[in-house]
């Protein structure tokens, strides 16, 4: 096999896995948008906040330590213990659920029946508030997140594939990050669980009912407040998973919240209301931008990854505004 072909395969594989990471973020948007028609601008910050909380709990940091030290003149930073990863993840999940409840209690409950744009503005406010809160609670330094997943290139794959290239060519084998492989598997599991939940449980059915028609859902006795807390909790859980994966890859820092921007084109491609759409959209964008960068990039000076996704999304908006899997607007004639 020629090295060019092998390079292309490597690019596609890496693209697919990058796509899964985008899809992870997009999922959270889809969940909330479907159930409440709110475009949750804060989803990216929720991922950041979840990751910060996880690192903080794991390393036994004292929350608000800077604030406490400044007010009381003390000098405490750590409790002096570390928490096992799994327990820390569970505790972080509890924090996200509490957060979901608070958001509904303090913000959304007062905005029922407002225009979508007002709800959207509220989530923008929420995003900036959480950014600040995250800094205040856990400090603004860049943290390393280690949840025990393997990372770095797979030597096995490198060795195996190096032999595939034609004799005499300088090909050293494929580079695939193990962390990406794990992220992919976790994301796939997450999607399967979410799909089963929404298709086959009573609560899942109620979630879909609310997504279809708020008023009718109210009329059959589904409590919107309860459903919204559930949805925001699930979105918080998804944000935690995304935060763990992205945090393990890039380190936990402010720029983590910007991954939300990468989720936007994914949503436009896949449709704002479809879970499979978020996945396929993510994959298309991941593969598309990596292949484009690999093949066309060198001719036009590279760095195409920054804009390729948005151009693709723009094309989709022109030709298929509801996205690939967006809910078809059912119209009886």
């Amino acid at each position: 096999m020629s090295p060019t072909f092998l390079y292309t395969v490597e690019v596609i594989l890496n693209g697919l896995m990058a796509g899964v990471m985008y899809a992870l973020v997009a999922l959270g948007f889809v969940l909330i948008f479907k159930a409440s028609g709110i475009f949750n601008y804060a989803q990216g910050v929720m991922a950041l906040f979840a990751a910060l909380t996880l690192v903080g709990i794991q390393q036994g940091q004292v929350p608000f330590s800077h604030l406490i030290n400044a007010v009381f003149g003390t000098d405490i930073h750590h409790f002096g213990w570390t928490v096992p990863t799994l327990l820390a993840i569970l505790l972080s999940l509890c924090v996200m659920i509490l957060f979901a409840w608070l958001v509904n209690r303090l913000i959304l409950r007062h905005l029922v029946n407002q225009e979508p744009i007002i709800l959207f503005m509220a989530t923008i406010g929420l995003a900036y508030f959480m950014e600040g809160l995250g800094d205040l609670m856990w400090g603004s330094d860049i943290k390393r997140l280690d949840v025990g997943l393997p990372s770095g290139g797979s030597f096995w794959l490198e060795d195996v594939t190096a032999g595939w290239a034609a004799e005499g060519s300088e090909y050293y084998g494929m580079y695939i990050d193990l962390l990406d492989v794990w992220a992919t598997m976790i994301a796939v599991t997450l999607v399967i669980v979410l799909t089963l939940f929404s298709q086959y449980t009573k609560t899942g059915r109620a979630l879909r009912a609310v997504a279809d028609d708020h008023q009718a859902a109210l009329s059959v006795g589904i409590s919107l407040k309860a459903i919204w807390v559930i949805v925001w909790s699930i979105a918080g859980f998804v944000a935690l998973v995304a935060g763990i994966m992205w945090g393990a890859k890039l380190g936990v820092q402010f720029s983590l919240s910007l991954i939300a921007l990468k989720a936007l084109p994914v949503l436009m491609l896949g449709g704002f209301t479809s879970i499979p759409g978020a996945i396929v959209g993510g994959l298309i964008i991941g593969v598309g931008e990596k292949l484009f960068e690999f093949s066309i990039g060198p001719m036009i000076g590279g760095a195409t990854e920054n804009w390729f996704a948005y151009v693709l999304a723009l094309l989709f908006l022109v030709f298929r505004p509801q996205g690939l899997f967006g809910e078809k607007i059912i119209e009886r004639v």
């Binding site: 059915r205 109620a206 879909r208 009912a209 997504a211 279809d212 009718a216 059959v220 006795g221 059912i330």
Partner: peptide, 19 residues
């Protein structure tokens, strides 16, 4: 009417038993 358009008829009926 206000049926849940994207749910099947049977799923629609089942939502009535939510409470």
């Amino acid at each position: 009417r206000h049926c849940f358009e994207h749910l099947t008829i049977e799923e629609n009926l089942m939502t009535g038993a939510y409470t």
